[in-house]
């Protein structure tokens, strides 16, 4: 995309063209100087719209729940943006992004914008990319922003980083609760949802989760445990009410500002780390192999090698 093209795209974006929004999402997702330009232009347009993260183990019905949430907000005339994140294969760099399957006809609703994203294996980069893609959608005028991802390790932390409220979704199927606890999913939850609540074991699961929550240190926000049957739209209004309540809590307690400040700090740190690393790498890449040889031969430790490399880099920077 040439500079003039980018300007034209921004112009189209501000007049509400979806193709332009999609393009700008690609630009920020791909990162680099062009992404910075775009964000610079978009930041004044940010509205502070609520950002909701939906995560949970595979197969609990997250996409179906997101579909139901989107329909709920559409009924209340809110424009909705959805970012659905799926893992990139570490072996091939490819990914199959299948979340649209569940959202079927929402695709053609002009008040809804859905974007699928692959994690692209970037350490910490996902949080940045996700947040910035949400920025684009917010600047585009979407009034409710939803990020959905499977919670199997790191990605749910990234989602927490990119959103204000995190809903962790589980289903009564065996082991989901345990899996969630093990995976640290409970740590990021502002709201817990047991979906597929029409299946056996749902009540038991709610009790298990509540017992687990009761053992946690007291905090101002007590994490509610809700039940939904997303495929039938049951419990969706209650879930949205809980999300609103959490939002009010965030605003009144000052947590929202806190969270956004913390998020900004993390962002700055990440950008700084990226930049520093890029510069260091550009300067030192040629020297690393020789040091590696010495370390491998037992002549140096990785620490002494790094110390020397860093000294060389810092000297140059001055």
């Amino acid at each position: 995309m040439l500079e003039t093209d980018l300007d034209r795209t921004l112009e189209a974006f501000f007049t509400g063209q979806r193709r332009a929004a999609a393009r700008l999402i690609s630009v920020v997702e791909n990162g680099g100087p062009r992404a910075e330009d775009v964000l610079h232009q978009l930041y004044p347009r940010l509205t502070g719209a609520p950002r909701l993260g939906i995560t949970g183990p595979p197969g609990v019905g997250k996409s179906t729940l997101v579909d139901a949430l989107v329909r709920y907000h559409r009924k209340h005339d809110r424009r909705v943006g959805v970012v659905a994140v799926d893992p990139t294969s570490p072996f091939t760099g490819g990914a199959v992004l299948g979340d649209r399957v569940r959202m079927g006809d929402l695709t053609t609703d002009p008040g809804v914008f859905i974007r699928s994203m692959a994690t692209r294996g970037s350490l910490g980069g996902l949080a940045r990319a996700t947040k910035e893609v949400v920025d684009v959608l917010e600047a585009f005028g979407q009034q409710m922003l939803i990020v959905e991802t499977v919670g199997v390790g790191q990605t749910e932390m990234d989602v927490a980083q990119a959103t204000d409220s995190v809903v962790v979704v589980l289903s009564p199927e065996s082991g989901d609760a345990i899996q969630a606890m093990k995976a640290g999913l409970m740590e990021v939850a502002d709201i817990l949802v047991v979906n597929k609540a029409d299946r056996p074991g749902a009540g038991q699961m709610v009790r298990t989760l509540e017992a687990d929550l009761a053992m946690r240190p007291h905090s101002e926000w007590s994490v509610p445990v809700l039940v939904t049957v997303a495929s039938k739209g049951e419990g969706i209004a209650e879930l949205c009410a809980a999300v609103d309540e959490h939002r009010v809590h965030l605003e009144q307690s000052g947590d929202l500002a806190d969270r956004r400040r913390r998020r900004a700090q993390t962002e700055i740190t990440a950008v700084l780390r990226d930049r520093l690393w890029q510069r260091a790498h550009a300067r030192l890449a040629d020297e690393i192999p020789a040091w590696a040889e010495r370390v491998a031969a037992g002549q140096e430790t990785p620490y002494t090698a790094a110390r020397s490399l860093m000294a060389a880099f810092l000297e140059d920077s001055e």
Partner: peptide, 10 residues
Amino acid sequence: YGEYTEPIII
């Protein structure tokens, strides 16, 4: 009865 959407399996 409603309509059915299948799980995503690739």
